[in-house]
Design a protein around this nucleic acid. Structure first.
Length: 812
RNA sequence: GCCGAAGUGGCGGAACAGGCAGACGCGCACGACUCAAAAUCGUGUACCGAAAGGUAUGUGGGUUCGAUUCCCACCUUCGGCACCA
């Protein structure tokens, strides 16, 4: 028996597969396609265990689907622009390009050691000019179609990363930067945005895609749709003051209005007597951080402007206040306050002695405003509401909206929490935004034939807070594509989430020059059939890429409503101490070391086995030993000859049964991403083989069939050892070009079953019966069993339940 | 406060559709081989009990002949949202 040396056989077969190009996926109209995609890695330097966890189980599944007859594309590439490269440059004075491409080179080698079926001809690197040329081209398309715009506004700024961030990249209660954890601050800047909000409603639709409930919920919450009405109040000076409300039926209960301190009408509304107080309040409000302002348990503050507005439904004159609990960033930055029915307004009114008027009376109660201790959000009958008084809650909303529409003072409206996507970054290592500013002609896109706008190499990337490209002596100066006069380039670069919004399209044809992708490849491969990655992208990348696809569809560039039909999330591999892996914890598991110690096959199998893939778990150094032992036992059980073929017909029959039962469950589990039970089923079958071998099964036809099926089932999991075993057991190269085994239902069928006998639901006996036993037969056997007789004693069974092939329950 | 997910041995986890709870592996114990150890192989391993038997899937109820699985309430952990009008 040859010795199992993983390092030797893995290197050997990887080279051979590469040479033969057995994993190359080409358009083939005769075969069903399957586009399996895993989120592309950032080239941070070393492949870590998380990459293996994210990539090798999906690789096994892609291999399984290939054996099932699909033409499977499983590509790989690099999300190569981004901050860490630039930070390395600042810290160690290495050019970001050099740092990035060195890392990519290193990671390519590490990725190859996985033995995955990547088709390397389709590799893309987002920092390559031929890639970002098309990133820029897409930007221009979005601009031309009114989906990219620039605007001067308050935006989130990370003082550590020295750049603005999208709303999605600001996390948590303390509003910190998603990358570095530093709390963000507000800055007023001229920035580029994509109009994601235009797609808010469509992004809420998930019926065409099989995505985890969790992701759908996160996206739904993030988009935050709320239905209500937009109502126009009028200030005494005649200005329209628009508000959004989800409760138009409480309009008659609006006893004052509140504006955000930043609201543009504040200055005009403020009377001379109030000016001092108002100015002071506005000043202290702007000084506070968002976190301070938005903390819910803070006591309400605010000041009266001196101004008044007219309520359109009853022409009442109501005071206008400013308060920081009203946010300029949501709705219109102004609200109608209905203290009787909104807790926040209630607290505000009580504190400042403003009128509280009940306009919704819950059934069977008689609530008066002076006795209330909190707002009543409950629905009930409208009261104190003019001609609509007496309207029950079921109709109140619609009737109120119809009324204000009739007055020409409002309409039904929907509001979203989702903001447009801020994509400008004041950093160097990204795709330059392909726009120029001409004094005469305004803001213009760079003409298509001039793309890509190349990122210059000779740049000072000091963290000044300004875009490094702005400080370049010549780069920013150009000529206007329209008038030929002097013009300046946009010096900000794009958010790298822009690069990753369309990489799945570049994989289709990274060699293609006439467009971002070859339409023939698109027609065959798209959409992505299965997408895998971490949950952390639920409200970032996964919203962006859906938006991007829909925008492209509306421009006629892509087809179909969704880019990725099925999504599955893997969990996280924690350190052995159950903490998140990090250098500072000293609990990092290095896959390279594990590959040299155990081989890639063991690591792949262990990552599939050690936890539920969607949950993840702490790493275990002793756990991987068990998986390695299993592969070594597979090797010796199959290759070590046993003397004499003496197995009984029963042993042979049992072996084949177990083999086909295993095939059934392994097939089911691959379909359903239940990787851990694939391995345990294969372990069980090996245990059965070990027993059968001890009983003389080695060398029988059934043994050979079992070995043959076993190796094919093992092939997706542990591709190298399987290829070697396939060859050593006398088969032709390559096991990875074999079909998935066909299930023999007859062989898998049980002819005897063990019936569980219960009395009152308690286990009392087990009896062996033929699988095809009928109702009466089973019940009789059970009733006559010794144990049942003993327990039953004198009592008579009241009812006997038989569940076919499973149990008999005797009720006494 | 709102929304979502998860609670099963010493550990990771299994149980397809309401029907033997704990598969498989780790760990541990004992045994074989060995001068010895490692490796390997074998046996055992939820808890209480000498046994018969009993008790167990976060807690308490319910439905059912039968509940880890379905329903209700609660507790804990994790994640998201949050003065969102």
């Amino acid at each position: 028996m040859p010795f199992y040396n993983p390092n030797e056989i893995e290197a050997k077969w990887q080279a051979r597969w590469e040479e033969d190009g057995i994993y190359q996926a080409d358009v083939d109209p005769d075969r069903p396609k399957y586009y399996a995609l895993t989120m592309l890695p950032y080239p941070s330097g070393d492949l870590h265990i998380g990459h293996w966890y994210a990539m090798t189980p999906p690789d096994a599944r892609a291999r399984y689907l290939r054996m099932q007859g699909y033409n499977v594309m499983f590509p790989i590439g690099f999300d190569a622009f981004g901050l860490p490269a630039e930070n390395a440059a600042i810290k160690r004075n290495i050019h970001p390009r050099e740092w990035t491409y060195k890392n990519i080179e290193r990671m390519r080698k590490q990725l190859r050691s996985m033995g995955a079926m990547f088709d390397w001809r389709r590799e893309m690197v987002s920092a390559d000019p031929e890639y970002y040329k098309w990133t820029q081209w897409f930007f221009i398309k979005l601009f031309e179609n009114g989906l990219a715009y620039h605007k001067y506004s308050p935006v989130d700024w990370c003082p550590n990363c020295n750049t603005t961030l999208a709303r999605e990249q600001v996390w948590g209660d303390d509003r910190h930067c998603e990358r570095c954890g530093t709390p963000v601050i507000k800055k007023d800047l001229d920035q580029w945005f994509f109009r994601t909000t235009r797609y808010a409603d469509e992004l809420l639709k998930f019926d065409a895609i099989d995505w985890p409930e969790r992701v759908r919920t996160l996206q739904t919450n993030w988009i935050g749709r709320s239905e209500g009405a937009s109502v126009i109040f009028t200030t005494e000076q005649g200005d329209a003051l628009e508000v959004f409300t989800t409760r138009p039926d409480t309009l008659w209960g609006a006893t004052f209005m509140v504006m955000a301190p930043e609201h543009p009408l504040v200055a005009k509304l403020t009377t001379p007597e109030q000016k001092k107080t108002v100015d002071a309040y506005v000043l202290q409000a702007t000084r506070q951080t968002d976190v301070q302002r938005e903390s819910a348990d803070k006591e309400k503050t605010g000041v009266f402007t001196g101004g008044y507005a007219i309520n359109p439904v009853n022409n009442e004159r109501i005071p206008i206040w400013i308060a920081d609990y009203v946010l300029m960033s949501y709705g219109t930055g102004a609200i109608m306050a209905v203290p009787a029915h909104d807790q926040r307004d209630f607290e505000f009114a009580r504190k400042f002695g403003l009128e509280i008027r009940v306009v919704i009376q819950p059934e069977g109660e008689d609530i008066s405003s002076d006795k209330m201790s909190e707002a009543i959000p409950a629905h009930g009958m409208m009261v104190n509401s003019g001609h609509l008084s007496g309207t029950p809650s079921g109709q109140a909303f619609d009737k109120a909206v119809a009324y204000i529409e009739g007055l020409g003072k409002g309409r039904k409206a929907v509001n979203y929490r989702l903001r447009d996507w801020l994509i400008s970054r004041q950093r160097y290592w990204g795709a330059p935004i392909p726009m120029v500013y001409c004094e005469k002609c305004g803001v213009l896109p760079v003409p298509e034939e001039q793309l890509p706008v190349l990122l210059p190499d000779d740049v000072e990337w000091k963290p000044t807070g300004e875009s490094p490209l702005k400080l370049h002596p010549t780069w920013r100066f150009t000529t206007c594509p329209n008038c030929g006069g002097k013009a300046e380039r946009e010096t900000d670069t794009m958010d790298t989430f822009m690069c990753s919004s369309w990489y799945h399209l570049r994989y289709l044809s990274p060699w293609y020059h006439e467009g971002p992708f070859d339409p023939a490849e698109y027609d065959y491969w798209m959409p992505v059939d299965n997408y895998t990655g971490g949950i952390e992208h639920a409200t970032m990348h996964l919203i962006y890429t859906r938006f991007f696809h829909k925008a492209l569809r509306d421009m006629g560039i892509t087809r179909g409503d969704e880019p990725m039909l099925q999504l599955r999330n893997q969990g996280i591999v924690l350190g052995e101490d159950s903490e998140k892996m990090s250098k500072s914890h000293g609990n990092v598991v290095a896959p390279d070391n594990l590959v040299s110690a155990y081989g890639a096959d063991t690591l792949r199998a262990y990552l599939m086995f050690f936890a539920r893939w969607d949950l993840g778990a702490p790493w275990s150094n002793s756990g991987i030993d068990g998986t390695h032992r299993w592969l070594r036992r597979v090797w010796s059980v199959m290759l070590e000859q046993a003397p004499g073929v003496t197995a009984s017909a029963e042993v042979v029959r049992n072996l084949l049964r177990k083999t086909h039962q295993t095939l059934r469950s392994v097939t089911h589990d691959f379909e359903n991403f239940e990787f851990n039970t694939i391995i345990s089923s294969l372990m069980e079958l090996l245990n059965e083989m070990t027993k059968a071998k001890a009983q003389g099964a080695w060398g029988t036809q059934a043994w050979d069939e079992t070995v043959n099926i076993y190796i094919r089932m093992l092939a997706p999991v542990a591709p190298h050892i399987s290829e070697e075993l396939w060859q050593l057991t006398g088969n032709r190269y390559s096991v990875h070009q074999q079909a998935w085994p066909v299930l023999d239902e007859e062989a898998a069928a049980e002819d005897k079953v063990t019936l569980v006998v219960q009395i009152n639901g308690k286990l009392r006996d087990r009896i062996e019966v033929p699988a095809d036993i009928d109702d009466e037969g089973a019940k009789n056997l059970a009733l006559n069993s010794e144990a049942v007789q003993k327990f039953l004693g004198a009592s008579q069974p009241r009812q006997v339940i038989y569940v076919k092939g499973r149990l008999v329950n005797i009720v006494v």
